[in-house]
Every structure is written in C-alpha cells, then in structure tokens.
Design a protein around this nucleic acid. Structure first.
Lengths: 156, 156
DNA sequence: GTCGGTGCAAATGCTTTGCATTGAT
DNA sequence: ATCAATGCAAAGCATTTGCACCGAC
C-alpha cells in the first residue's frame, strides 16, 4: 500500500464529515480504485477496474462519488482532445498534473515540471489573482507514432 | 473587418476544397460568427449570436460546421472546469490560446505568454515529440471575486 | 431509529444522424 | 446534372435523478 493511500482516505473522510455525509464501503472502494488508476481515468474505465477487482458498484454511485471527490479537491475533471467522455485526474497531493498526449495513438506521458507551476503563479500574481490549480496539456506526435507513419508511407 | 478575416476564410475554403466539400452560405456565416465571438464560445451561444445577427442556421449545421472547422485546424474543443457543454476556441493564427478562469465568477482572461510555447517545445523535444498545440488554463480567483467574497463575509 | 446511500430504471440534455429536400459546383 | 448540404425530427449516449429499499451513524 503506497504511503499516500492513508492520507487521501483521511482527506476524503474529513470532507464527508464536514458535509454531514457518510463514509461507505462503496465510496472507499471508488477512492481506492481511483488511486490505483494512477492519475487519469474516466467513469467507465473506473467501473471496469472495480469490476475486475471484484468490487461491484453501480454506475450511478460511481458518478455520485466522483462528484464528491471533486468537491473534496481530490480529483478534477479533464477533457482530452476529441474525447467524448469526461476524464478525471487525481490531483490531491500530486505533482505533476501535466501531460503530453499523442494525437495519433492516444499515448499519454505525464510531465514532471515545476516550471509550469512557477509560470502559473507568476502570471496569476501579475493579474492579482490567486490560483487553485491549472491544466497544461501538450498535444503532439510521439516518436512511435511518427515512425509508424513513415513506415506506412514507404510501404505504399 | 479585421485583417484576419479574409485569410481565415481562405484557410477554410482551401480545406473544404481539399476534402471535396462545399463552401456554403451557412458555413460562411458560422465562420464569421466564430471570428466575432473573439475566441471562446459554445454551440449554443454561437447559435444565439447568429440569430441576433439575423443569420438563421439549424443547430445540426452548427455542430457539423464546428466539426469541419476543427478538422481544418481553425478551432479546437475546450472543456472548462464544471462546464457541461463543449466550448470551442479559435486557434488558427492566434496567439495566445491560454486563459485564466475564475472558478467563482467564470471570468476569463486571455494570457499573452510566449514562455508557454517555449516550455512546450522544450518538453516535447526532451521526449522526442513534435507538437501540434497545447492547452494551458489557470484556475483561480479574480480580484473582483475575492473582494466580493470578503464583502459577503463582513456583511453577515 | 434516523437520515443519507445505493441500485435500478427512467429522464435529461448535448450532440449526432437518417432522410427528404435544397443548393453549390 | 450531380452529389453534397440543410433542416427537421428522431436517435445516441454520457450523465443525472426519482424512488423504494438498505445501511452508517
């Protein structure tokens, strides 16, 4: 069990208590699966992961719990280019939350880059804002996709 | 008429021709309204803008044309935090495409910052990727929202 | 025991699509 | 004249919600 698991669970329980909501087995299961999803997922993949782990929860509960996790500041919604469904990202206690996405293969590379946060803070300060987060996604072509494309070309 | 109008229209026509598609009055109206929307909009607001300008187009055509504009590289879809609908952003020939969004008021501030592009290119290069674009959004609280909040507190 | 939670199925609402008609080339 | 575009209404589909039963506190 990674060391982050206990604190995150505590954060969620604290939030639920503050809102007079209950910490149920289903909510615990969803949170645990979110943490194992390693950052980025959608409602459906989460539901499948839970099913594969033998944790059966209804779709409605997944959506309801994702909303709570969002309110608790644990995840944020996230829309990939061309995706039709909302993706979620685990943000609490996590750096980085930046990604590079391949527009051809869908490949996703997390980026570790403090400069994004620094840039964000500097820009916000210049306008007198205070920040609560940011989203930085680079769209591009991965080396694999590029070489696959050139293979396709030369084989014609 | 801003100087960008003619070129953008030409870009669209070129794209349509290359795909054996037709440049119709409806598509011209949609593009013109997109350009006047000054960057960020959704399908519904676009439809209203067109109605207010006396340009009647069906909702289906708006969606279909937005898809074409996306394929032509003129706009990209864009999901604001908590928004339920897809927003679109005019990207062709436009810098900046970065924003700061107030999570309380929805206020939107476009950011002019070359460093984002530089950072993007450097990160992509480090991984051997080539980029086609990026998305950078800062979520925060604007000075107005912050002062409104403190007023609310002191009046209680 | 009291509310809040859950699952189910139905509803919602954005977006897409089938089809007959219209229009650009 | 051809073949794509349009408008309309219906369909799709992710997400939300109403309700009866269940479970955390």
């Amino acid at each position: 069990m990674p060391p982050i698991l206990a604190p995150l669970c505590a954060v969620f329980r604290r939030y639920l208590k503050s809102a007079s909501l209950r910490y149920t087995g289903e909510r615990a299961d969803v949170l645990a699966t979110v943490m194992e999803a390693d950052g980025l997922f959608d409602a459906d993949s989460l539901l499948m992961d839970m099913h594969n782990a033998g944790k059966e929860v209804s779709k409605a509960t997944v959506y309801r719990t994702l909303r709570l996790l969002q309110d608790a500041g644990i995840v944020t919604p996230f829309m990939l280019l061309d995706a039709k469904v909302t993706h979620y990202q685990l943000v609490y206690g996590r750096d980085p939350c930046d990604y590079m996405v391949c527009v051809q293969t869908g490949e996703l590379v997390p980026l570790q880059c403090d400069e994004v946060v620094m840039l964000r803070e500097r820009l916000a300060l210049e306008h007198g804002w205070t920040t609560v987060g940011h989203r930085f996604v680079i769209y591009g072509t991965s080396p694999q996709a590029a070489s696959a494309a050139s293979r396709d070309l030369s084989s014609q």
